[in-house]
Design a protein around this nucleic acid. Structure first.
Length: 210
DNA sequence: TGTAGTACACGGGTTACCTCA
DNA sequence: GATGAGGTAACCCGTGTACTA
């Protein structure tokens, strides 16, 4: 279509529908987004419009609704993503904090081990020597550390303090046979935290349910 | 029964006009 | 009054479907 005829046609044909026409079209669209031919013809007569105009109005209306729905869906997804990203950050920080605490405790354990080997004593306190004051002090320190690591049960240790609540965090220290099972949990979690978030999320349908 | 042609409706994208700040 | 942005009627094109010879 050339520009001249287009201008001519649009100048004569293209004008906005009246409020009454729009109101009726909207009310019908509420109940049915697609019109049957008979209803379209009837509506065209009722509104003094061409059937073609009714068809086009419904097509455009469906397109507008779809576009609006897409915008709303995007806003919802974006909000959900922001919440998840925030949780991810806080979990990452907690992980780093726990790793730091773990590092400290490992160092402490190594020191104790070296002291025990150097002095020839052990945690049982049944050493054949140790009558000196230094030995008594060492034994006392060992006892303090031991009690801090094992406050309730032999396989429970203190990892640190919560920043916000100032409460001690306890973690059940796994028995050897439990350790392998624990690794099965931790390794995927580490993979998750260390960066391959999207690969994990797309491979795991449960992620979307979450 | 399978096939080519036709009409029609639809979705997606675009154009051109109108309105308003 | 000029102008740019947004809304929208109308159009174009490709595709799917129903119908018919």
């Amino acid at each position: 279509m050339d520009s001249l005829s287009m201008t001519c046609i649009t100048k004569t044909n293209k004008r906005r529908f009246s409020t009454e026409q729009i109101t009726l079209l909207e009310s019908i669209f509420e109940t049915e987004s697609k019109l049957e031919t008979q209803k379209k013809l009837q509506l065209a007569r009722q509104l003094s419009l061409q059937p073609r105009q009714i068809s086009i109005w419904f097509q455009n209306k469906r397109a507008r609704c779809k576009s609006k729905q897409l915008q709303q869906d995007y806003a919802i997804l974006r909000a959900n993503y922001d919440v998840l990203a925030s949780r991810f950050d806080s979990l990452n920080k907690e992980k780093q904090s726990l790793q730091t605490e773990l590092q400290k405790l490992r160092g402490l354990m190594d020191e104790l081990e070296e002291d025990r080997r150097g002095s020839g004593s052990d945690f049982s306190g049944n050493g054949t020597h140790g009558s000196s004051n230094d030995d008594k002090q060492d034994a006392q320190q060992e006892s303090q550390v031991k009690s801090s690591l094992l406050p309730e049960s032999p396989n429970r240790m203190v990892l640190g303090l919560c920043d916000d609540q100032q409460n001690e965090i306890f973690r059940d220290y796994p028995q050897p046979q439990e350790e392998a099972a624990l690794v099965n949990v931790i390794e995927p979690a580490n993979a998750f935290i260390s960066g391959d978030l999207f690969q994990l999320s797309f491979n795991d349908a449960l992620w979307w349910e979450f």
